[in-house]
Every structure is written in C-alpha cells, then in structure tokens.
C-alpha cells in the first residue's frame, strides 16, 4: 500500500517541479530545452496514472507523448530554419 503513495507523491513532485522547471528553468528560452523539460511533467503524469491503475490510459499516454514531442520538435526545427521571429 505504501508503494501507491510513493508513486503518487513522486508523480506529484515530478509534475510540479517539472512544470516549474519548464516555465522558469535555466535556459528555457531555447524552445528545444523547454520541450525537453515538458517531458518531466509528462512522466509525472504517467506515475499518477499508474497509481490509479489506469494502465491503458498510461499506455496510450506514453505513445501520445512521443508523438506530441515529435510534432513540437518538427515545428521548432522548421521555425528555427526559417529564422522566424515570433
């Protein structure tokens, strides 16, 4: 039973630290670093889903995060290439 709480609170910590890190972490003005940092809350969410035994949602989420980061990276690379000033 203790395991559940460990997972849950590790997940909570990861989500909160990760999102703070994404917002004001070092070097986040580089979009690629920011995208890398969003992986942390994503893993925190995975832990929370695991706590609730939502394994299918967890499975889907792991796959979807990969696709989302792929999409974001594509946008970042493309925009960087254009030299776009947003």
């Amino acid at each position: 039973m203790l395991d559940i709480y460990t997972w849950f609170y590790t997940g909570v910590a990861l989500v909160i630290i990760g999102s703070i890190g994404t917002v004001i972490g070092p070097g986040v003005n580089d979009p690629i670093i920011r995208t890398l940092n969003t992986e942390i809350p994503a893993i925190g969410l995975s832990l929370i889903l695991l706590t609730y035994n939502s394994t299918i949602a967890l499975l889907t989420y792991i796959a979807a995060t990969t696709i989302i980061s792929m999409i974001l990276l594509r946008a970042i690379v493309r925009l960087e290439e254009l030299g776009a000033e947003l």
Partner: peptide
C-alpha cells in the same frame, strides 16, 4: 528525482 533534477 535524480533524473528530474538532472534534466532541469
């Protein structure tokens, strides 16, 4: 936790 701190 180590990984998190490391990534950030």
């Amino acid at each position: 936790v180590i990984g998190t701190l490391g990534v950030i």
